[in-house]
């Protein structure tokens, strides 16, 4: 049932955005934060970045900047390379044999395309949340403790505290505190996704990557995740891929619009939605295609 709802929500939001995108954005209060957006220090520098799968070029010479402790939304029709871009930031594409990239991708001074770069350390600093919640077939506790245990050894009490903190951060603690040692697979989809966020937070990252974190969730669970993202905004640099422009407008400070592998336009969310510079952007945000 809840899967049936998601597309209709999407459609609805697209329609209302089409009628008056500015009204939406303004109502959600993003506009007020817009001024500080461009002043935050740069976290990720992207210059002439191109990526391939074999001979297929999935990203075509993209340049922009992701700022520290801001939410950057990547939008665009499916297949335009959003996930590919995200997966280069934490080098998840190392798992794909045919993937390669060129250009500059620089996170806080680390050259992400350097073959000798320590990906394990990078992934400690860059957490990721996937499209489909992927809780491990372990207890809730062990899910959260999984990441920290990889990197450090803990005394039991320390780990307990870390698990609690992470779950509180992900607004899940109250719901699961009595069943920490039950299987995580027994949680609902939305809880599972918040668990995955808690799991990513537990390692202590600076950057959180989220690849359509709500697309498998019902509207209510989606709203809870969005609330959570707004809370996390003050502590983490968040890059979120979303299909849902409404969502991008609600939660992001900066939006980048990808189309067929190219970055068409990037800028303050309010600007992108209210005064798009490119015709394609305008058509997309008003729901005329995509």
């Amino acid at each position: 049932m809840r899967h049936a709802d998601a597309p209709s929500l999407l459609k609805e939001s697209r329609e209302s955005a089409a009628l008056n995108p500015l009204a939406n954005v303004a109502r959600l209060g993003v506009a007020g934060q817009a001024d500080s957006t461009t002043r935050a220090p740069v976290a990720l520098t992207v210059r002439d970045f191109s990526a391939w799968y074999g001979s297929f070029q999935a990203i075509k010479s993209v340049s922009f900047e992701v700022r520290t402790k801001r939410v950057t939304a990547l939008i665009g029709p499916s297949g335009c390379g959003k996930s590919t871009f995200l997966r280069w930031i934490n080098r998840m594409n190392d798992m794909v044999a045919s993937a390669r990239a060129e250009g500059t991708l620089n996170l806080h001074g680390i050259d992400l395309l350097d073959q000798r770069m320590d990906v394990v350390d990078l992934r400690r600093r860059v957490g990721m949340v996937f499209q489909k919640p992927n809780p491990f077939p372990k207890s809730i506790y062990d899910n959260i403790a999984f990441g920290p245990r990889l990197h450090r050894s803990f005394r039991r009490a320390e780990l307990d505290r870390l698990v609690e903190q992470s779950l509180r951060h992900a607004a899940l603690w109250e719901e699961v505190k009595d069943r920490l040692h039950d299987s995580a697979l027994g949680l609902s989809g939305g809880q599972q996704q918040r668990l995955c966020i808690a799991r990513a937070i537990a390692v202590g990252p600076e950057v959180l990557l989220m690849d359509e974190p709500c697309s498998a969730l019902d509207p209510q669970a989606t709203l809870r995740i969005e609330d959570l993202i707004r809370q996390l905004r003050s502590e983490y640099t968040i890059v979120i891929v979303t299909h849902n422009m409404q969502q991008a407008a609600r939660i992001s400070d900066v939006t980048a619009f990808f189309y067929e592998g190219a970055l068409i336009e990037a800028g303050r969310t309010i600007d992108l939605f209210t005064k798009p510079q490119k015709k394609q952007t305008e058509e997309y945000v008003t729901g005329r295609f995509g």
Binding site: N90, M92, M95, V120, D121, R123, R124, G127, M128, F130, N134, F136, F146, G147, L150, H151, C196, R199, A200, V203
Partner: peptide, 8 residues
């Protein structure tokens, strides 16, 4: 992917 993303 989940394990790798956690830095395993």
């Amino acid at each position: 992917e989940g394990a790798f993303a956690a830095g395993a």
